[in-house]
Design a protein around this nucleic acid. Structure first.
Lengths: 344, 344
DNA sequence: AATAGCGCTCGTTATATTTGAGTGCTAATA
DNA sequence: TATTAGCACTCAAATATAACGAGCGCTATT
């Protein structure tokens, strides 16, 4: 019996919490007791709502900018709200349809698909969208080709089984025969090897060269460089939407955000945290423990190649975003990308 | 005699004009008559300076934000000032040295050299730096390679004589023999052909295929796509510096600037105007006739491959920049890039 | 336990006042 | 005739004052 009573009270408080969060998402102004009652058909008196909001504040879900102002959600409040959205709603059918249309003009280049996906995320959310390319450590080598471009230069072409193509010029002067031998050596020993392990593998197998093949030896070492150059790549779009986010002034916030967007490494670090989680994930404000992001939330979802998670995509928006819509957006797009990667 | 007198007067006015411009560059506040006298050792009374400034205003070189404020330069004022800097000063030797150091860790990839150059421009100017890659119409084909990546897909690799590498996957299923024939056909007919003309050339030479080589024919058409995909490429860095430019508020200006930075095509259009000029060139504020740039100036310099101008680089900064320094920066870097391109 | 009522707080907005930088003009001066 | 000193005037920006009202917390009531 008490159990039920408690649950009813809880229910009522939750309703108020989400009313505040939704209202604040719309107006960006502190939410007063009256508005909660009017707009979210709660059949309680203002006084009661005030009491409950006071309790919610004591428990850390809401705050007060100043004495006589309405309530705004804390990070903890957002967290509770987000956690309570257990099941991701399906998107409106028309939206789903539009996303599919966007994917329809498919390209064979995985790079352009990822770039497109990032643009889609940004376009639909009106925030900043990003896609981290398949992580190199889960990207295995499919083929390596060596094209001579001049007397003493060779273009290395690297194709991974995720379909990514990397190339690099290095200065090595070998004759056609030596080149072919090196190429075969590389392909024989590196096929299916992860990019992260390739250097080590070359070092290990290089012993098989004979003494008199010194040129080949040094060339192979040269080639190792390409693997060091490869970093986890990331596509970011709609950074200018950041301007629209902060409702006027708040100059410094934007400044640091714009700067943040230019520094891809930081973002990579942040979203890598969500990589292992596999599914959808939200970092709210200071949860990221990065000062630049204290007023922002990041919604991410890992995507997979049908086998295992290989990358992460998502959006960055203001803390007061419409989490329900954004969660379903990110989730849908990640599914769409999964689909695409499976069918290629 | 009068000639001399006139020239003296002019001289004096010019001195005031550049005093105002320099002071305004430092403080971003309207410049009054007193400051001009104090800081630029002009031995005239405030009243006289006021008279001369009034004349300069009548002639359109200065304006007034409001009655009781100092003067600020107009676009015409800047233009006169910039034009009067006839000879580009040499850079401080240490600066020159630092630039050379930056270039020292040279890479063989022209792409990374250009990207680096853009970062250098941004870093030294503290504004936005950009480098437009060698224009495609001056970029000739050096080699084309076709690598089969699966049953029905081929990776086309295109190397230009400027050293750029482009690649694209297309869906064509040919056997090894056909592939070799196609490759030879392409190389025989396209070597030294400009990227801009390549499609037309293929269409022209394709007749030589026999009737029974329909697969080859359609494959060749497929390959034409790669040439359509190639656009003049541009590297932009330090867009976030734009924030530092506008001294607080001016929110909308920044907004449009950030947006401008995301749209590379507009910038390409703007700087293409300076391409033909060959040398160094400045667009001040509304001279670009683009509203987003009305408070900004663009300093550009074409660079060449020892033979002819092939691209443009430069910086975008506030109208009230230190033109002397920026002109010499852009000029030096363009020389450095010329040097690099010649010695490769 | 829920609510009505009321006084209090404090940010916001509006209005008035002061300040001072810098002008333009006129009359004196070299 | 060109320059300068002097002074009244203007107007943005800073400062001060007042009025407003949204929304709270608290207490007494149902």
């Amino acid at each position: 019996m008490r159990q039920v009573a408690v649950s009813v009270i809880k229910e009522r408080k939750n309703k108020i919490l989400s009313a505040v969060i939704n209202q604040y998402a719309k107006t960006a102004k502190p939410v007063g007791s009256d508005v909660v009652i009017d707009s979210y058909n709660i059949k309680l008196s203002p006084a009661t709502v005030r009491n409950l909001m006071a309790e919610l504040e004591e428990e850390g879900f809401l705050t007060h900018p100043h004495t006589s102002a309405g309530r705004i959600p804390t990070d903890k409040g957002y967290r509770a709200y987000v956690d309570s959205i257990m099941e991701i709603q399906d998107m409106a059918i028309e939206e789903e349809e539009r996303i599919k249309q966007e994917y329809a003009q498919k390209s064979r280049e995985i790079e352009s698909v990822l770039s497109k996906t990032s643009k889609i995320l940004s376009g639909f959310s009106q925030y900043t969208g990003f896609v981290m390319a398949p992580k190199i450590k889960y990207n295995a080598i499919k083929t390596i080709e060596l094209l001579p471009v001049s007397q003493d230069e060779v273009l290395i072409i690297l194709i991974t089984n995720a379909g990514m193509v990397k190339h690099k010029r290095v200065g090595i002067s070998l004759n056609q025969q030596q080149l072919t031998r090196l190429r075969n050596f590389l392909n024989d020993n590196l096929r299916e090897v992860s990019l992260a392990d390739a250097s080590a593998r070359i070092a290990q197998e290089i012993k098989s060269f004979k003494q008199n093949e010194e040129e080949l030896l040094s060339a192979a070492e040269e080639i190792c460089d390409i693997f060091y150059d490869i970093r986890d790549d990331i596509y970011i779009d709609g950074a200018s939407n950041a301007m629209a986010i902060s409702d006027e002034n708040d100059f410094d916030a934007i400044k640091s955000l714009i700067r943040f967007n230019e520094d891809k490494n930081k973002l990579i670090e942040i979203i890598n945290r969500d990589f292992d989680s596999g599914g959808i994930s939200v970092q709210i404000g200071s949860e990221s423990s990065l000062d630049e992001l204290k007023d922002l939330s990041i919604v991410t979802n890992a995507y997979n190649d049908g086998d295992r998670a290989i990358g992460v995509l998502g959006i960055i928006g203001p803390k007061r975003m419409e989490y329900d819509k954004m969660l379903s957006l990110v989730s849908s797009i990640s599914k769409a990308l999964n689909e695409f990667l499976k069918n290629r």
